[in-house]
Simulated scan of single mutants.
Amino acid sequence: MPISRRTIALPLAMLLGMGPALADKHLGADQVRAAVAAAHGGRVDLSGKDMSGDDLSELDLSGANLTGADLSRANLHGVKLVDSDLTGARLVNADLTFAWFIRANFTHADLHGATLQTVVTSRGMENTKDQAAKFVGADLSDTHTTVHFSLYDMRGANFSHADMTVVMANQSMGLLRTEFNGCDLDGANFAAAGLGHVAFHFARLHGANFRGADLTKAEFIGAYLDNADFTGAKTDGADFESATLTGVKGLKIAPP
């Protein structure tokens, strides 16, 4: 007797959605890929699932519900997260190199120690507001990051000890760097982060914490830095042209 798609999908439905005991079970990479295939172009629900350490590289998780999912140490190289919801997800030490972030929601996600290199943030050359991802309250501490975050909502995000400094010796093809141009970073924490050559053009940084950060040749052109704290920060060659500096603390240059 031929096996129908419904017969194949049933065990997956049972695994993904039935019973508290199975809800806590780790899903292997093959099970995750099968669940995505069984969604038949729909939005797979992997909320709260444990996929830690899995190799999910190149998987298309566009539109997936990944709220509260555990993707710690997962290989997410090249994964498409377009329109995916990762609210409260755990991505500690995950590899997100070449991942797609278009309109993804990382609100309160934990990305501590993750690798975010050469991430796809738009379908064109420049970020646009309608394609921007969200990282409100997200933890990106100790990350290794080279991303064009421009226009993202990143209020209250934690970038402490993150490494974003550009290594100029590796820039033979032009300057590839992290950019926060036009971002909302009010209340963000960049304490002790490496931010050499990082761009913050016209970003909102009210009350941001840059204590002890390396801001060598960082660019704050037109940025809103009211009440930001630069105590102990290294600001050699940093550009604060037309920046709003009302109430800033610890900045070693004289406000204009």
Rank of each mutant, 00 (worst) to 15 (best):
L81Y: 15
S84D: 08
V119C: 02
T87W: 10
A99G: 04
T178V: 15
A208H: 00
A191V: 09
A223G: 07
H77P: 01
D30K: 07
F106E: 02
V136R: 15
A74S: 10
V248H: 04
A228V: 04
G28R: 04
R123Y: 13
L81T: 14
T97F: 07
R90P: 02
H144K: 15
R211L: 08
T146F: 11
G207P: 00
T107G: 02
K134N: 09
D30C: 00
L251S: 09
A254W: 00
A9N: 06
M1S: 11
G78M: 09
G196R: 14
L195C: 11
V82D: 13
I102N: 02
D24Q: 15
A38F: 00
L140I: 08
T165P: 00
L140H: 05
R73V: 01
F180M: 13
N227H: 12
A114M: 08
S141E: 09
T118Q: 14
D95A: 08
V167D: 15
A109T: 04
H144E: 13
A29Y: 01
A223K: 07
S4Y: 01
L66K: 06
N227F: 14
F149I: 10
D130V: 14
D184W: 13
H161C: 05
F135H: 03
P255I: 11
L61W: 05
A104T: 10
M125T: 01
T216P: 01
T143L: 06
G19Y: 05
A208T: 06
A138R: 06
A132Y: 08
N127R: 14
G207K: 01
D110I: 09
G156Y: 11
N170S: 13
R177N: 11
